[in-house]
Design a protein around this nucleic acid. Structure first.
Length: 220
DNA sequence: TATAGGATTTAC
DNA sequence: TAAATCCTATAG
């Protein structure tokens, strides 16, 4: 699954594939390819190498923890639909809804490796970051609520990574220790294009963010 | 109506 | 280390 023709020949994941717990879907999504037909009609693809699971209303890092609102409405809908939102007033972030109907779960895609030939409409060539991959693939809120089993959005099955690593999620310190430290981020251990490098992880796979940095800082 | 802050990225 | 930048949620 390293060339565009290979992706085109591979099978599209059906909606029911996403109707499982978010952590499972997040893990299994590694190695598959996200494909999007841009506003200019061009096809763009990236191999998914990093994901995060947001597991429900009880997950304090999940947007749905604040209740069912206009913004989070799609998360309560059927699995396999796109949840796209704007953060920091700048970046569009792409998620896929998972779980049973009525369960507000989703998987955030945080990094892709561009399939050769894929260049963003603005010339972007990097996919290592949740805001970067949406620019690369021309994904934005026009796709909010769209299903991901037919164009413009499809996800194609691909070989699983040889090594999958689970770490805490990025940028959710506000959610409290339990949910900020839960290992719900999944990365392809062989990829060099992650949003936060594995080199910054401790030996147990935990992120250094707020964990190792504080515990190992020399008392000076 | 007003305000605070965010599942980030980039530049100084 | 801070700015960019706008939508959502919450308070008044």
């Amino acid at each position: 699954m390293t060339s565009a023709p290979e992706v085109e020949a591979s099978c599209v994941l059906p909606l029911r594939w996403f109707a499982r717990p978010a952590a499972e879907v997040a893990r299994d999504l590694l190695g598959s390819v996200l494909r999007c037909v841009g506003r200019d009609g061009a096809v763009r693809m990236g191999r998914i190498v990093e994901t995060e699971a947001y597991v429900g209303a009880h997950d304090l890092a999940c947007h749905a923890a604040k209740g069912r609102t206009a913004r989070t409405e799609v998360m309560f809908g059927p699995a396999g639909h796109a949840y796209v939102y704007l953060v920091y007033g700048l970046h569009e972030l792409f998620n896929v809804v998972t779980g049973a109907l009525g369960e507000p779960q989703a998987v955030l895609v945080r990094a892709v490796e561009p399939v050769p030939g894929t260049v963003g409409p603005s010339g972007a060539v990097r996919g290592d970051g949740p805001g970067r991959l949406t620019r690369l693939l021309d994904i934005d809120r026009r796709l909010l609520g769209e299903r991901v089993d037919r164009p413009p959005l499809t996800i194609h099955r691909g070989p699983a990574p040889t090594e999958t690593v689970a770490t805490p999620r990025i940028g959710v310190d506000y959610a409290g220790t339990e949910w900020a430290s839960a290992r719900l981020r999944f990365v392809d251990g062989a990829s060099a294009q992650l949003s936060v490098s594995l080199a910054r992880l401790g030996p147990d796979g935990y992120s250094s963010r707020g964990v190792r940095d504080t515990s190992r800082r020399p008392a000076s």
